[in-house]
Protein backbone atom coordinates (compact mmCIF):
# COMPACT_ATOMS: atom_id res chain seq x y z
CA UNK A 1 0.00 0.00 0.00
CA UNK A 2 1.35 3.45 -0.80
CA UNK A 3 2.11 5.24 2.42
CA UNK A 4 1.10 8.67 1.21
CA UNK A 5 -2.33 10.21 1.24
CA UNK A 6 -3.63 12.09 -1.74
CA UNK A 7 -4.22 14.89 0.72
CA UNK A 8 -0.70 15.63 1.95
CA UNK A 9 -1.86 17.67 4.93
CA UNK A 10 -3.26 14.46 6.40
CA UNK A 11 0.22 12.89 6.28
CA UNK A 12 1.65 15.94 8.01
CA UNK A 13 -0.98 15.71 10.76
CA UNK A 14 -0.24 12.04 11.37
CA UNK A 15 3.53 12.61 11.31
CA UNK A 16 3.30 15.46 13.79
CA UNK A 17 1.15 13.59 16.24
CA UNK A 18 3.46 10.57 16.11
CA UNK A 19 6.46 12.79 16.65
CA UNK A 20 4.76 14.02 19.83
CA UNK A 21 4.27 10.42 20.95
CA UNK A 22 7.94 9.69 20.45
CA UNK A 23 8.87 12.83 22.34
CA UNK A 24 6.56 11.84 25.18
CA UNK A 25 8.01 8.32 25.12
CA UNK A 26 11.53 9.75 25.37
CA UNK A 27 10.59 11.87 28.39
CA UNK A 28 8.96 8.90 30.11
CA UNK A 29 11.97 6.64 29.49
CA UNK A 30 14.15 9.33 30.99
CA UNK A 31 11.84 9.68 33.99
CA UNK A 32 12.02 5.93 34.67
CA UNK A 33 15.82 5.82 34.52
CA UNK A 34 16.41 9.05 36.43
CA UNK A 35 13.97 8.28 39.22
CA UNK A 36 15.65 4.91 39.74
CA UNK A 37 19.08 6.53 39.57
CA UNK A 38 18.01 9.14 42.12
CA UNK A 39 16.94 6.36 44.44
CA UNK A 40 20.16 4.37 44.06
CA UNK A 41 22.34 7.48 44.43
CA UNK A 42 20.15 8.93 47.24
CA UNK A 43 20.00 12.12 45.20
CA UNK A 44 17.03 14.32 46.24
CA UNK A 45 17.80 16.94 43.60
CA UNK A 46 17.55 14.50 40.74
CA UNK A 47 14.33 13.17 42.29
CA UNK A 48 12.97 16.71 42.39
CA UNK A 49 13.84 17.16 38.72
CA UNK A 50 11.85 14.02 37.80
CA UNK A 51 8.85 15.38 39.73
CA UNK A 52 9.03 18.71 37.94
CA UNK A 53 9.35 17.19 34.50
CA UNK A 54 6.20 15.11 34.96
CA UNK A 55 4.24 18.27 34.18
CA UNK A 56 5.77 18.27 30.72
CA UNK A 57 4.65 14.69 30.19
CA UNK A 58 1.11 15.53 31.30
CA UNK A 59 1.00 18.54 28.99
CA UNK A 60 2.14 16.40 26.07
CA UNK A 61 -0.61 13.89 26.71
CA UNK A 62 -3.20 16.67 26.69
CA UNK A 63 -1.76 18.04 23.45
CA UNK A 64 -1.75 14.61 21.79
CA UNK A 65 -5.37 14.00 22.77
CA UNK A 66 -6.43 17.38 21.45
CA UNK A 67 -4.54 16.88 18.24
CA UNK A 68 -6.00 13.38 17.76
CA UNK A 69 -9.53 14.71 18.32
CA UNK A 70 -8.88 17.45 15.78
CA UNK A 71 -7.60 15.01 13.15
CA UNK A 72 -10.54 12.65 13.71
CA UNK A 73 -12.99 15.54 13.33
CA UNK A 74 -11.36 17.07 10.28
CA UNK A 75 -10.06 14.08 8.35
CA UNK A 76 -12.55 11.29 9.10
CA UNK A 77 -9.83 8.67 9.24
CA UNK A 78 -10.60 5.05 8.37
CA UNK A 79 -8.88 1.68 8.64
CA UNK A 80 -5.17 1.94 9.54
CA UNK A 81 -5.40 5.74 9.88
CA UNK A 82 -8.22 5.35 12.38
CA UNK A 83 -6.28 2.69 14.24
CA UNK A 84 -3.23 4.94 14.29
CA UNK A 85 -5.19 7.70 15.98
CA UNK A 86 -6.92 5.39 18.44
CA UNK A 87 -3.60 3.85 19.42
CA UNK A 88 -1.97 7.27 19.70
CA UNK A 89 -4.58 8.25 22.30
CA UNK A 90 -4.19 5.01 24.24
CA UNK A 91 -0.40 5.01 24.13
CA UNK A 92 -0.34 8.60 25.36
CA UNK A 93 -2.62 7.57 28.25
CA UNK A 94 -0.37 4.66 29.18
CA UNK A 95 2.77 6.81 28.95
CA UNK A 96 1.17 9.38 31.22
CA UNK A 97 0.48 6.71 33.84
CA UNK A 98 4.07 5.45 33.65
CA UNK A 99 5.21 9.05 34.13
CA UNK A 100 3.05 9.29 37.25
CA UNK A 101 4.61 6.16 38.69
CA UNK A 102 8.08 7.58 38.07
CA UNK A 103 7.01 10.76 39.83
CA UNK A 104 5.78 8.71 42.76
CA UNK A 105 9.11 6.89 42.84
CA UNK A 106 10.85 10.27 43.00
CA UNK A 107 8.58 11.43 45.82
CA UNK A 108 9.33 8.36 47.90
CA UNK A 109 13.04 8.79 47.16
CA UNK A 110 12.88 12.24 48.77
CA UNK A 111 11.58 10.53 51.92
CA UNK A 112 13.90 7.53 51.74
CA UNK A 113 17.12 9.60 51.66
CA UNK A 114 16.47 10.42 55.33
CA UNK A 115 16.15 6.77 56.33
CA UNK A 116 18.62 3.92 56.78
CA UNK A 117 19.58 2.14 53.59
CA UNK A 118 18.03 -1.25 52.87
CA UNK A 119 20.86 -3.45 51.71
CA UNK A 120 20.74 -4.22 47.98
CA UNK A 121 17.19 -2.97 47.43
CA UNK A 122 17.89 0.25 45.46
CA UNK A 123 20.17 -1.67 43.10
CA UNK A 124 17.56 -4.38 42.52
CA UNK A 125 14.94 -1.70 41.91
CA UNK A 126 17.21 0.05 39.48
CA UNK A 127 17.68 -3.19 37.56
CA UNK A 128 13.94 -3.63 37.43
CA UNK A 129 13.46 -0.03 36.24
CA UNK A 130 16.09 -0.57 33.53
CA UNK A 131 14.29 -3.66 32.35
CA UNK A 132 10.98 -1.76 32.13
CA UNK A 133 12.66 1.13 30.36
CA UNK A 134 14.15 -1.28 27.81
CA UNK A 135 10.73 -2.83 27.29
CA UNK A 136 9.25 0.62 26.75
CA UNK A 137 11.96 1.51 24.28
CA UNK A 138 11.31 -1.69 22.34
CA UNK A 139 7.53 -1.15 22.47
CA UNK A 140 7.94 2.33 21.01
CA UNK A 141 10.36 1.01 18.37
CA UNK A 142 7.79 -1.66 17.51
CA UNK A 143 5.23 1.12 17.23
CA UNK A 144 7.31 3.21 14.87
CA UNK A 145 8.30 0.22 12.74
CA UNK A 146 4.85 -1.40 12.86
CA UNK A 147 6.56 -4.53 14.16
CA UNK A 148 3.95 -6.80 15.74
CA UNK A 149 6.51 -9.55 16.44
CA UNK A 150 8.66 -7.24 18.53
CA UNK A 151 5.55 -6.00 20.34
CA UNK A 152 4.60 -9.58 21.17
CA UNK A 153 8.10 -10.20 22.50
CA UNK A 154 7.80 -7.12 24.76
CA UNK A 155 4.47 -8.41 25.98
CA UNK A 156 6.04 -11.71 26.98
CA UNK A 157 8.93 -9.98 28.74
CA UNK A 158 6.59 -8.44 31.28
CA UNK A 159 6.72 -11.85 32.91
CA UNK A 160 10.33 -11.17 33.95
CA UNK A 161 9.38 -7.87 35.57
CA UNK A 162 6.63 -9.64 37.49
CA UNK A 163 9.16 -12.17 38.74
CA UNK A 164 11.58 -9.44 39.79
CA UNK A 165 8.79 -7.79 41.73
CA UNK A 166 7.83 -11.07 43.39
CA UNK A 167 11.41 -11.66 44.49
CA UNK A 168 11.64 -8.14 45.94
CA UNK A 169 8.32 -8.56 47.70
CA UNK A 170 9.56 -11.69 49.48
CA UNK A 171 12.81 -9.98 50.36
CA UNK A 172 11.08 -6.94 51.89
CA UNK A 173 8.77 -9.21 53.82
CA UNK A 174 11.77 -11.00 55.30
CA UNK A 175 13.49 -7.72 56.24
CA UNK A 176 10.39 -6.40 57.93
CA UNK A 177 9.91 -9.57 59.95
CA UNK A 178 13.55 -9.56 61.02
CA UNK A 179 13.67 -5.90 61.99
CA UNK A 180 10.51 -3.90 62.58
CA UNK A 181 12.51 -0.64 62.27
CA UNK A 182 12.87 -1.41 58.58
CA UNK A 183 9.11 -1.44 58.07
CA UNK A 184 8.82 2.21 56.99
CA UNK A 185 11.60 2.18 54.37
CA UNK A 186 10.60 -1.32 53.22
CA UNK A 187 7.01 -0.24 52.74
CA UNK A 188 8.20 2.70 50.63
CA UNK A 189 10.49 0.43 48.65
CA UNK A 190 7.74 -2.10 48.23
CA UNK A 191 5.41 0.54 46.80
CA UNK A 192 8.20 1.60 44.47
CA UNK A 193 8.70 -1.98 43.29
CA UNK A 194 4.97 -2.40 42.87
CA UNK A 195 4.80 0.82 40.85
CA UNK A 196 7.57 -0.35 38.55
CA UNK A 197 5.71 -3.62 38.13
CA UNK A 198 2.65 -1.54 37.16
CA UNK A 199 4.80 0.41 34.68
CA UNK A 200 5.54 -2.95 33.06
CA UNK A 201 1.80 -3.58 32.75
CA UNK A 202 1.34 -0.23 31.00
CA UNK A 203 4.22 -1.03 28.65
CA UNK A 204 2.42 -4.30 27.93
CA UNK A 205 -0.71 -2.30 27.10
CA UNK A 206 1.33 -0.22 24.68
CA UNK A 207 2.71 -3.39 23.07
CA UNK A 208 -0.85 -4.69 22.71
CA UNK A 209 -1.86 -1.42 21.04
CA UNK A 210 0.97 -1.91 18.56
CA UNK A 211 -0.36 -5.36 17.74
CA UNK A 212 -3.84 -3.85 17.26
CA UNK A 213 -2.42 -1.12 15.06
CA UNK A 214 -0.63 -3.59 12.81
CA UNK A 215 -3.10 -6.48 12.68
CA UNK A 216 -6.42 -4.78 13.46
CA UNK A 217 -6.96 -7.18 16.34
CA UNK A 218 -5.96 -7.17 19.97
CA UNK A 219 -4.02 -10.24 21.09
CA UNK A 220 -6.41 -12.68 22.68
CA UNK A 221 -4.60 -15.21 24.81
CA UNK A 222 -3.52 -13.89 28.15
CA UNK A 223 0.09 -13.58 29.09
CA UNK A 224 1.69 -16.08 31.45
CA UNK A 225 1.05 -14.91 34.99
CA UNK A 226 3.42 -16.07 37.70
CA UNK A 227 2.77 -14.50 41.03
CA UNK A 228 2.98 -17.56 43.22
CA UNK A 229 1.40 -15.38 45.87
CA UNK A 230 -2.27 -15.62 45.08
CA UNK A 231 -2.41 -19.14 46.52
CA UNK A 232 -0.80 -17.92 49.70
CA UNK A 233 -3.17 -15.00 49.97
CA UNK A 234 -0.18 -12.69 49.95
CA UNK A 235 -0.83 -10.73 46.78
CA UNK A 236 -0.73 -7.10 47.87
Amino acid sequence: MPDRHILRAFDRDLREIQAEIMKMGGLVEEAILESARALAARDPELAEKVRRRDREIDALEARINEEAARVIALRQPAASDLRTLLTVIKIAGNLERIGDYAKNLAKRTAVLVNMPDIEGAPRAIRRMAKEVEQMLKDALDAYMRHDAALAEEVRQRDHEVDQMYNALFRQFLTFMMEDPRSITPCMHLHFIAKNIERMGDHVTNIAEQVIYLVTGELPEESRPKATGFSEEGLTP
Binding site: M1, R4, H5, A78, L82, E217
Partner: peptide
Protein backbone atom coordinates in the same frame (compact mmCIF):
# COMPACT_ATOMS: atom_id res chain seq x y z
CA UNK B 1 -11.71 -0.36 10.50
CA UNK B 2 -9.76 -3.34 9.27
CA UNK B 3 -10.00 -4.06 5.54
CA UNK B 4 -8.30 -7.27 4.46
CA UNK B 5 -7.14 -6.18 1.02
CA UNK B 6 -4.44 -3.50 0.67
CA UNK B 7 -6.32 -2.00 -2.30
CA UNK B 8 -9.37 -1.45 -0.11
CA UNK B 9 -7.16 0.08 2.56
CA UNK B 10 -5.55 2.43 0.04
CA UNK B 11 -8.89 3.55 -1.29
CA UNK B 12 -10.76 4.14 1.94
CA UNK B 13 -7.85 5.89 3.63
CA UNK B 14 -7.49 8.22 0.64
CA UNK B 15 -4.06 7.07 -0.47
Amino acid sequence: TNPRDPRTESYITGR
